[in-house]
Computed example of a mutant assay.
Amino acid sequence: MDDLASKKCAPCNAKDLQAMSEQSANELLAQVQGWGLLTEGGILKLHRSWKVKSFTKGLEFFKLVAEIAEAEGHHPDLHLVGWNNVKIDLWTHSVGGLTENDFILAAKINSLKIEHLLKRKTAR
C-alpha cells in the first residue's frame, strides 16, 4: 500500500478521473486518521474538524493548508466557524464526489505540524 502523503494529486480535468464508490472511500479512509465521510447535497466528501487556540491561529492553519493545496492543484473547502472551529471538506468538484486526490490532500494535511495552533483536545 503506497503512502498517500507521498503521492501527487492528478489533474482534476483528467478525462479518466471519476468519483469513487462509498465502499472504495471507506477502504481509503483508514489511511487518513481523523477524517470522516459526509454526504452533503448528494455529494460524498471527506470532512474533519479541529479546535484552534484563536481566530488568528485558524487563519495560520488555513495558510499552511493553502500552501499544500496550491502545490497539489487541488483545493479544499475551508471553514472558520465561530472564532476557533476549523472545518475542512474535501471533494473533487469536477467529478462531484471523492477521488484519490482528496485522500492524498487529507494525508498531506495530516502531516502538517500544527500542534502549536490547536487547543489541547481536537474535535473530530
Rank of each mutant, 00 (worst) to 15 (best):
D3F: 09
D3N: 13
D3P: 01
L4K: 03
L4Q: 02
A5G: 01
A5I: 00
S6E: 14
S6H: 09
K7D: 12
K7I: 11
K8I: 02
K8N: 01
C9Q: 05
C9W: 03
P11Y: 06
P11N: 13
C12W: 00
N13Q: 07
N13G: 13
A14R: 15
D16H: 13
L17P: 07
L17C: 07
L17R: 07
Q18H: 11
S21H: 08
Q23D: 13
Q23A: 15
Q23Y: 11
S24H: 13
S24G: 06
A25C: 06
N26L: 14
N26Q: 15
E27L: 15
E27F: 07
A30P: 10
V32Q: 01
V32M: 04
V32D: 03
G34A: 00
W35D: 07
G36M: 09
L37H: 04
L37E: 12
L37N: 04
T39S: 07
T39I: 11
E40I: 06
G41P: 06
G41A: 08
G41H: 09
G42N: 11
I43F: 00
I43R: 08
L44F: 06
K45R: 14
L46P: 10
L46Y: 01
R48M: 02
S49L: 10
S49R: 14
K51Q: 12
V52H: 08
V52T: 15
K53W: 06
K53I: 10
S54Q: 04
F55E: 08
T56I: 13
K57T: 14
K57S: 14
K57A: 15
G58Y: 00
G58L: 01
L59W: 12
L59E: 07
E60G: 04
F61H: 10
F61P: 10
K63T: 15
V65N: 01
V65S: 06
A66K: 04
E67L: 15
E67S: 13
I68R: 11
A69W: 01
E70N: 15
A71H: 07
A71L: 10
A71M: 10
E72C: 10
E72Q: 15
G73A: 12
H74G: 08
H74F: 03
H74P: 11
H75K: 14
P76Q: 14
D77F: 03
L78C: 10
L78Y: 10
H79T: 08
H79Q: 11
L80H: 05
L80A: 00
L80R: 00
V81Q: 10
G82F: 10
W83H: 12
W83I: 13
N84T: 08
N85R: 12
V86W: 00
D89T: 05
D89S: 11
D89P: 02
L90G: 03
L90D: 04
T92H: 00
H93Y: 14
S94L: 08
S94C: 09
S94R: 06
V95N: 05
G97R: 06
G97K: 01
L98M: 14
L98D: 02
L98C: 05
T99E: 03
T99R: 07
E100L: 09
D102Q: 05
D102T: 04
F103Y: 02
I104A: 02
